[in-house]
Design a protein around this nucleic acid. Structure first.
Lengths: 244, 244
DNA sequence: CGCGGATTTGAACTGAATCAATCGACGTGG
DNA sequence: CCACGTCGATTGATTCAGTTCAAATCCGCG
């Protein structure tokens, strides 16, 4: 039994998978009806572009399912992933005309899209909503700074271990976790080797070699190239900060 | 002739050097009086700690003059500067109990300090004020992501050129600019070689060598180790993104 | 079953780190 | 006024982690 919004449309939000974890969680029932009225679903296949760098921003979105990579690209083709977002993250740069980066679906993605104008109006009318987005932004900034330490100062093996540890830790939220076998965590990697390399500031070859080392060290197992089991989480954590 | 606040104190804000550029710019005269009442000046000498990592946050501040570095440090001593802030930037991490990084004065610094509680109350009562801080945070996030591209994908010479270009561009705002001689820009470096290395993810030796190369290429001149003149700004920009 | 992109593996190379002096500016005290 | 010590910066020689170039090999999929 679904609620109806004022204009008679089905109230999708009430059955939304990320209803309580997304920014919308800061909204009341009435406000939710308002946002429901302007929201549209959009499915993006893995590898497709969501927003180009320098493209005019016309919408914002919640990630309902899947993974999105935010990438910076240099004139000569070198690229760096500067943000990785999963459900229920918010996607978009408020208060700016053009996108400062390239947003692409890393896996198949389901978005809940809001037109820019209406969303910004809602934002200015609901201080609690803006505060929630502000807090999310601060968390993203903290994450970006953690990643700066990784990019600037960690070795290749620490980088790869840190990445796998991060995915393992977040896999239940990301929705890529398999039923936890035995003691370890198992999950499907949301990124290709090439994406991992672009996220860590390495080459694919180095990523592959370092994953190989973790495998021979008995810290992880690979069932397929993108199916990982962490068999020694403590060992992985140690490898991530080189305390071993 | 200075204004008096309600409690009779001198209204310092009205003569503040960063009055119109700092977050306080979002406040009305009344609100300014309120914040003036809780603000205190604090002078920090170069090299002194403003806030330790994991230390409980008890205050926020505006940087009135000087440069502050935000640093992440690993257990084995490796460190990475994850943010560099200048007047009139805002200093502090709202909505969090403990500081996610170490904040240290890079040069002598003058701060305008607000106690946490009062500041947060003001923040929640004045939506415009919170929005202003939100916008500043988004800009910091953009800057952090630009730096991630630098850390992950640029070469040592590109990193050093990018850094000098950034300082040259911002030197008028930072207050380290000398009267512009001839065509070029001259300024005082707000960081030591060691700090520059920690900001770029390099060693001091590499930083020194790359600055040397820019000097022999006729792009910059060094009057003293920290006194720089950019004689070929286009050349510097080209070296920063390797389009040359 | 075979094709094509993704991944792994190997060998050689190189950019930046490391190790090691030396230099220079500045403040202190003889 | 100059020798001395300190700290930051430069310069040089060597090493090594990670890249580059070049083949295999592995899957996923029609």
């Amino acid at each position: 039994m679904q609620m109806m919004s004022l204009n008679g449309e089905v109230m999708r939000c009430s059955s939304c998978a990320i209803r309580h974890r997304a920014v919308c969680g800061a909204l009341s029932e009435d406000e939710l009806a308002a946002i429901n009225a302007i929201a549209r679903q959009r499915i993006v296949k893995a590898g497709e572009t969501i927003l180009n760098a320098d493209e005019e921003i016309t919408f914002f979105a919640n990630i309902v399912a899947g993974s999105v990579k935010l990438t910076k690209i240099m004139a000569d083709g070198r690229q760096q992933i500067v943000g990785l977002q999963f459900a229920p993250d918010f996607l978009g740069r408020a208060f700016r005309e053009r996108s400062p980066y390239f947003a692409e679906a890393a896996t198949d993605v389901e978005l809940c899209v809001f037109p820019k104008k209406e969303f910004e109006r809602l934002l200015s009318e609901k201080p609690g909503f803006e505060m929630r987005l502000f807090q999310d932004t601060l968390n993203e900034l903290d994450a970006a700074r953690d990643w700066m330490l990784l990019l600037g100062r960690k070795t290749a093996s620490e980088k790869v271990a840190s990445f796998l540890e991060m995915i393992a830790r977040r896999s239940p939220m990301i929705g890529c976790a398999h039923t936890a076998e035995q003691a370890g965590v198992s999950f499907h990697l949301p990124l290709t080797r090439s994406d991992i390399a672009d996220y860590l500031g390495l080459t694919i070859e180095t990523v592959s070699r370092q994953i190989g080392k973790l495998k021979s060290a008995g810290i992880v197992e690979l069932h397929a190239t993108r199916e990982v089991s962490v068999t020694d989480m403590d060992g992985l954590r140690a490898a991530a900060s080189s305390e071993a």
